[in-house]
């Protein structure tokens, strides 16, 4: 039974590796995600960030500009997520400890 499970997993890996042959070459500057204009005529966001980050915010580090300015609402959501995670640890462990003390 265990051999069957592992063979299924190996088959899954083989299918994924077969499918990855159609992915673009890693490091090719002509990839679609690195182009300046997409195939539908809109601006590709990554290239837009490279070209305009310093002009918009006077900050050399583009990752900081994307994190703090262009996608700042997304970052705010992430911060709320980690804050909620901290509160969950506080609430869950306090509730279980209290119940355990009551049983004893």
């Amino acid at each position: 039974m265990k051999a069957l499970k592992i063979s299924i997993l190996v088959l899954f890996a083989a299918v994924l590796i077969y499918a990855s042959a159609d992915l673009p070459m890693r490091g090719d500057p002509d990839n679609l995600m690195h182009a300046e204009e997409s195939i539908t005529g809109t601006t590709v966001k990554g290239s837009y960030f490279i070209q305009n980050a310093y002009r918009d915010a006077r900050t050399p580090n583009m990752v900081t500009v994307v994190l703090g300015d262009y996608r700042s609402i997304d970052t705010f959501g992430e911060q709320v997520v980690i804050y909620t995670a901290g509160l969950i640890t506080l609430l869950v462990l306090r509730v279980t400890r209290n119940r355990r003390n009551d049983e004893e």
Binding site: M33, G46, I50, Q51, V65
Partner: peptide
Amino acid sequence: TTLDPNIPVDQVANYLNPLTHT
């Protein structure tokens, strides 16, 4: 993805893609 004054920012191929890193 940190701006170097000697490398022009107009050619996109000079810098890595900052979006996925972020």
